[in-house]
Write a protein that binds this DNA or RNA. Structure first.
Lengths: 213, 213
DNA sequence: GTCTATATGGTGATAGAC
DNA sequence: GTCTATCACCATATAGAC
């Protein structure tokens, strides 16, 4: 959403490729990567699989593109929160709210991200694919580290209890990311409802279930 | 772990079938259901797939057995917590600790449970399989409802903040269940380490990240 | 760029020997 | 009960017409 994100004039090809990736994400979300055939993706695009292979050389690469786009959206979503003015706790809260919102908004992409790179540990054969795999794993770690650092900062500022940073980050992010299993985008109309839900989820992570006092 | 759980003398056949299901769970965990071939399961058992098919008529049924056993272990784990003497909050905490422990202890089964019944919505063809599918979905709901009820009780007793019960249950369980993505059983020796981890996870859910006071 | 064949390999499931 | 051999099918990927 920042001003220099959008490329000037996206070419027709880039748009077509983006459409392929988007529909592939929906297919992978619905049936899982392995159960999805390239024909399924083509059917959803209303074309034959020749076109799909024209834009993406292998099914594995198709998955990588979806995963990469999913991660890109996650980073993009929390970026404004990182610049939020306020205490380290307020920044952390803004990050969690933004992340929860992104998980709901980009449900299909993030479901595929969760399916994970693990499945492809043996499927990546070419050196090129292996490099992409490493890149995606690294981007996951980088993302989690942003939260670990912020949790550590907030703890050192005295805002948090004496939590283990690594475990806290995993439980906190897990609580938000588990929404891929229960959230149904079509049952939830409108941006407002989604934003309210994201705030409620983040509040539970920050404050816990227990009453204050 | 209760005294009337163990069948008197499990027959050799029951043991063999249990071994098939156990190894299938590990395969499904490692590669996912669809990417796992029946030959993979057989190879892990050190036999040919003839034996696998002897104990389980189809691959779909094999998945169902793993899922059913995974759910059985989850119910078994929290059952003692339900009888814990103490306040509704203490019962809730005991349930969360027990659930976290079960997720870590039965990592391979619970990873498969998470893969979900959703994938089989179109794979279940026979009426028998459809019935099993409904049963498994129902058992998931029943399990979540146990936590919802306890959260509602603790809230009505004034122990919790003014949380939405349904969302609180989903975020809380999700925070624990996400461990299927990061926990590595073999990197974590000993029962004590696991139990401590489970307590830490549950504490984060109950108390949240923020400091008390 | 997009399509329609088609080559190729692997997988679920079955039949029948032992 | 367990194995080997085999069938039928489906999916990835390619080749080549248009």
């Amino acid at each position: 959403m920042s001003e220099n994100e959008t490329p000037p004039i996206p070419s027709r090809n880039r748009l077509r490729k983006a459409a392929v990736i988007e529909q592939a994400a929906i297919c992978f979300m619905e049936k899982g990567y392995h159960a999805t055939s390239v024909d399924d993706v083509a059917r959803r695009l209303g074309c034959s699989k020749g076109r799909v292979y024209h834009y993406c050389p292998t099914k594995t690469d198709l998955f990588f593109e979806v995963h990469r786009e999913g991660m890109r959206r996650l980073f993009e979503a929390i970026e404004p929160a990182l610049r939020t003015p306020g205490s380290s706790l307020e920044v952390l809260r803004a990050m969690l709210v933004a992340h929860a919102g992104a998980m709901l908004r980009h449900h299909h992409f993030e479901t595929v991200v969760a399916q994970g790179v693990q499945i492809h540990r043996f499927g990546a054969t070419t050196p090129d694919q292996r490099a992409t795999l490493s890149e995606l794993i690294a981007s996951r770690d980088t993302f989690e580290n942003l939260f670990k650092k912020q949790i550590a900062a907030a703890r050192d500022d005295g805002h948090l209890g004496d939590v283990d940073v690594s475990i806290a980050a995993k439980v906190a992010l897990g609580g938000l990311q588990w929404s891929i299993y229960w959230y149904r985008p079509d049952a939830d109309r409108g941006r407002n409802a989604r934003d309210r839900l994201a705030v409620m989820m983040a509040d539970i992570i920050i404050d816990g279930l227990r009453a204050r006092g």
